[in-house]
Write a protein that binds this DNA or RNA. Structure first.
Lengths: 341, 341
DNA sequence: CTGAAAGCGCTTACAG
DNA sequence: CTGAAAGCGCTTACAG
């Protein structure tokens, strides 16, 4: 067990034979202390395993050291958000901040109590009432994926190149012999959904194929997901070409397509290719395993936190909109192998 | 926007025309202040929207107000842990505490820095090295599900009745006509896994059927999951009866069975029943949807936090092992319908 | 039953 | 370049 009470600034100062002020200056890297003194203080702080008492620092600086994460309501693609959250935590640890999640049940008083220094909102949606409330607090906000235009601009944002990954998926469909790829989107107007959709439409236009979209609506989500699959896979209309590939944006849709393809006389990975726009561990367990876009959520979360740090450091100074891009990569699996492997 | 600076104790005291000490006593419910004064202070605090400054309180009481959650490494059944975490947060909010997650990548220095008041460990496993380190800190610990005997006892625990839910699942298999139910377990020796396994063996003994277990090992988890399914569904040995129902403990196994049943000439929900020991939203999206045990993770998380509060309140006083049970319920879906619906 | 006072550990103007 | 001092908001012995 480590020492019960961690070393205090006073102890460091005494050992280094300087005042607490000097020690504080040395540790925070501010000018006003000679290089030799600074080095000595840093060495002793290191030896004693010193780190500043969070409560004292927060009290003095009127901060809370808390970064709050806001996730979309009713998230089914849990793994992405869980990983992204851990990414934020990874990075927050370095600056001694604490990360917590805001439950959607949190009342206004609860949010006031929370008293965060900043908010990271993943996949902000214009339909989320809590998000609107959070924006009103005026706290520094970093958005994971772009903020919808209807909402006030964030101080920083981290984005993925969904256009590129969508094109890569569609190209791999084509390479495996598919000629009529369809899209299943959720009804929520999160910006990444719009980006995938736009990239899909553009790809279709370039290739000269007619876009086929189905929306799994929010109300009665399970049934509407089934309806979307059915709409795409029943060839009730001989005028429209048969859908031979599906890019699904939510894991619910993916799983529904994978598990019901046989009912419609299709064989996934052979005469029906399928891919997911967000990867998840479960997609590696299905048979066949499902090709998906690895959005590198952990890295994405880390980047969100480092943008947040820049925003907090800037304080009220004008920074413009800080933007960072996190690269994605497609994990190719058996579901897009095509007939001829 | 609410007032920039929340009301302070001093303001409350001034308005109530008492000393800060008296106001503090009144608010904390301690004796030493007359009833009329107490009522006045409480009313004024309410009016001003007063709540104690976390940093000041923490500094004064040498606490951090942080509750850290430790999840198993490599969790695939994300939704359960996410919900349980939100449950902890729900409840922590009432006592003004902040909840954070401990990433498994966190180094020893990081853990010292974290400086939590207590730790809630979900599904503690004897194989988790981080958990062993956390136990050494001597911080108050509440475990979600029982602690393995090898590890030091927690101060409190919250458990589910896995025996009852396992029996309910197995009984429903039998009611739908299955005669040879099998179990797929993960290799991790989490106590709930052992409990389900024990309940399964006991049920088999009572029913006079031979238990059939497969383990999906950790290394090469995806492949071993497939192997487990194959082992159960290929009738290579005419001496052993054909498995006609499977209870899978992880969502990976469930999805693998559901998506590969057809390959083995089986039809899920008809001649092959399947159920999951932990429910997840994705199980509602497969076709057929999968019967599963709803462990009520949010309620479970809330209960963990309320046990933690009791532990913290007791301080060093001997409390014995505080235990709470959270009821579960089986969500019956099409995967266990059986041939004759 | 109530008030005056100390002090948690830090940061930061201010004076030397 | 360095030191002495104030004060963030709270809790809690201590004295009346």
């Amino acid at each position: 067990m480590t020492q019960p009470c961690p070393a205090t600034l006073k102890q460091v100062a005494e050992q280094a034979k300087v005042s607490r002020a000097a020690a504080s200056f040395a540790l925070s890297g501010r000018p006003g202390v000679s290089d030799t003194t600074r080095a000595r203080v840093l060495r002793i702080a290191e030896e004693l395993g010193y780190f500043p008492n969070r409560a004292a620092r927060n009290l003095r600086t009127s901060t809370s050291g808390i970064i709050a994460i806001c996730l979309p309501p009713n998230v089914t693609t849990m793994s992405y958000y869980m990983e992204a959250t851990f990414g934020v935590i990874d990075r927050a640890e370095a600056s001694g901040r604490v990360v917590t999640l805001i439950p959607h049940s949190l009342e206004e008083t609860g949010r006031r109590r929370l008293n965060a220094d900043g908010i990271i909102a993943f996949d902000p949606s214009p339909d989320d009432p809590m998000l609107a409330d959070l924006l009103e607090t005026g706290l520094p906000l970093v958005s994971g994926e772009r903020m919808p235009a209807e909402l006030s601009a964030p101080r920083g944002q981290v984005v993925s190149d969904h256009s590129a990954s969508t094109r890569e998926i569609l190209d791999s469909f084509a390479a495996a012999g598919a000629t009529c790829p369809a899209l299943i989107t959720p009804q929520e107007q999160m910006t990444w959904v719009l980006e995938v959709e736009a990239a899909y439409r553009q790809w279709c236009e370039t290739q000269g194929v007619a876009p086929r979209l189905e929306v799994a609506s929010l109300e009665d989500i399970a049934e509407s997901t089934r309806r979307a699959t059915r709409a795409l896979l029943t060839g009730d209309d001989s005028e429209t070409p048969i859908v031979d590939a599906i890019l699904a944006l939510t894991d619910g849709s993916v799983l529904n397509v994978v598990t019901s393809a046989a009912e419609f006389g299709r064989s996934v990975g052979e005469d029906l290719l399928i891919a997911a726009a967000v990867d998840s561990p479960v997609l590696g367990y299905t048979d066949p395993a499902v090709t998906a876009v690895d959005l590198r959520p952990r890295e994405f979360g880390r980047t969100c936190m480092s943008v947040m740090e820049r925003v907090l450091e800037a304080g009220d100074a004008e920074t413009g909109l800080i933007t960072e891009v996190v690269g994605t990569r497609v994990t190719h699996r058996a579901s897009t192998a095509g007939r001829r492997r």
